[in-house]
Design a protein around this nucleic acid. Structure first.
Lengths: 148, 148
DNA sequence: ATATGTGCAAATGCTTTGCAACGCC
DNA sequence: GGCGTTGCAAAGCATTTGCACATAT
């Protein structure tokens, strides 16, 4: 990843306008809709390269699909994602990191890495005292962070 | 999932002898090796049904593959899994639970749920590059691994 | 000029599904 | 005997890859 191509720029530009996590395919679709002509494989290759370079945040959904989002905080962090609208809050958990390292070492494990993602309902989508079984949400969810 | 078939029994039996997380395909392979004649689709269908019924622990690997294991501890717990052989250590992280709840509440999230999985290389599969302290782990260093 | 990046389509790998045959209850 | 179950192969999906062509530097 060393050259500046029109495609890469377009991908970054598209990403810069996304707020929530999106799959490679959604990003590709979005780009086509915006009139860009980019191959799907190129999108995949770049998203991969960019995340490898630490410029993107990757999140693996419950079904194994990878979701990407522009990353501001380059350090290690986690996400609190709304199951309904995809709204995301980044947070740090320094003590957690320490605990993980300790537990791993305790069991002789090395090269440890961990994934922690928190899913819930953001304030706006919390069914506060809503006893209705069948939730008929009038809001149109524009992003689905599929869990499964 | 209401009938007792030879296949389902065989799958459960096979699972009962597994210690670590295994993919559907590995389980299927194992069964064939043991002389069972079961279709791969059946293995998938049953693993799914069983996990839905809460009788199995499911773990989604980094590449999206689902790994299954018999579940003893029905409570909430996490896993430390060896990337190489699948050896698994269960652990609890009570403080983590508390932190998650706190962070979620802080951001107005409700009905929070989280996933935490730790991957690494167990002692046996650690590349010697890391000069780990003399950790005397008297644990059985034998792990039967399904080649891949 | 030339190493990189791109596009397309074919290939992968895991998982799901359609459908006829099968076998518990 | 009916209906959940199974098997097989085909279909699905997200993602990767081979290869010829295009293009930044």
């Amino acid at each position: 990843m060393q050259r500046n191509t029109r495609q890469r720029a377009a991908i970054l530009e598209t990403l810069s306008r996304q707020v929530d996590f999106r799959s490679a395919q959604q990003i590709h679709e979005q780009m086509r809709a915006d009139g860009e002509t980019v191959g799907l494989a190129t999108v995949y290759r770049n998203l991969q390269a960019l995340s490898r370079a630490g410029r993107l945040d990757v999140l693996v959904a419950g079904d194994g699909e990878s979701l990407y989002r522009q990353c501001e905080d380059t350090g290690h962090h986690h996400h609190l994602v709304c199951r309904e609208c995809g709204r995301t809050v980044e947070f740090l958990a320094p003590r957690l990191e320490a605990s993980m390292t300790a537990i791993a070492r305790e069991h002789g494990f090395t090269e440890v890495d961990h994934t922690l993602e928190v899913f819930g309902l953001c304030e706006e989508h919390s069914s506060t005292a809503a006893p209705s079984e069948d939730e008929d949400d009038p809001e149109e969810p524009e992003a689905e962070v599929a869990a499964r």
